[in-house]
């Protein structure tokens, strides 16, 4: 390991220790570490964007100009130039056009993403659980498969109806628990179970990072 590597390792160590100063209620060292992260990621991102997006997608095609379509090049150049107006005028309507275009594209992508990528697979997997071939094993009823299929359907519907919107007056009037209250309670059990499991997963991920960090410290001390 050369001196530069050692220096970088030391810098990383010092910055990460600054992060842990948060636990002592310190804001100065923690703030320095945080702004280092912000500045370094911003600098790196500028480089990546310029070299991997702007150069190959905007500048390089201009150098092959006669071979490519004039209108296509102009449109691409315009797409790149319009947001720059925001630097000069914060309320630039011209920049707003390109941002509006971007908004339209990402909204369309969101609609396709959630319908094609989330809703359809989730709904199909619920229905597929009712496939007769999954409900029997060697001609006999597969009770666990049957139970899971019905539990999935009932649970999903209960979770969906746990968020059913009620009118203010309707809620005040209903003193006795209605069927919707029962379904909401049932749905909340599943939401709680899911949140608990997710929480443990997140905690485990954090714990792994903590262990990796302690290992990093041990490695550093050994190296020293």
């Amino acid at each position: 390991m050369n001196n530069l590597d050692l220096l970088l390792l030391l810098a990383g160590l010092v910055l990460s220790l600054m992060v842990f100063s948060y636990l002592l209620g310190d804001t100065l060292l923690f703030g320095i570490a945080m702004y280092t992260l912000v500045g370094a990621t911003a600098g790196f991102t500028v480089l990546v964007l310029v070299q991997k997006v702007i150069m190959p997608m905007v500048i390089t095609p201009l150098t092959t100009f006669p071979k490519s379509s004039v209108w296509l090049e102009l449109a691409t150049l315009l797409a790149a130039l319009l947001p720059i107006f925001m630097i000069f005028k914060k309320s630039s309507r011209v920049a707003g056009i390109s941002l509006g275009f971007l908004g339209g594209v990402v909204t369309a992508a969101l609609i396709v993403g959630v319908s094609r990528g989330t809703l359809v697979p989730q709904l199909l997997s619920i229905v597929d659980a009712f496939d007769p071939s999954r409900m029997t094993t060697a001609g006999l009823p597969n009770w666990s498969g049957i139970f899971e299929a019905f539990m999935m359907l009932a649970g999903v519907l209960a979770v969906l109806f746990a968020f059913h919107h009620r009118k203010t007056k309707q809620k005040q009037d209903s003193l006795a628990p209605s069927w919707l209250d029962g379904l909401t309670g049932f749905g909340q059990i599943f939401i709680g179970i899911t949140f608990g499991a997710i929480f443990v997963g997140l905690f485990s991920t954090g714990l792994v990072a903590l262990i990796a960090y302690v290992q990093y410290l041990v490695d550093f001390v050994r190296l020293w």
Partner: peptide, 21 residues
Amino acid sequence: TMNWLRIVLAVVLIIAALLKL
């Protein structure tokens, strides 16, 4: 709209499950 969507989806899911079964 969400309330109605929920009801329609629930009905469709139950019918689809029964048809699959």
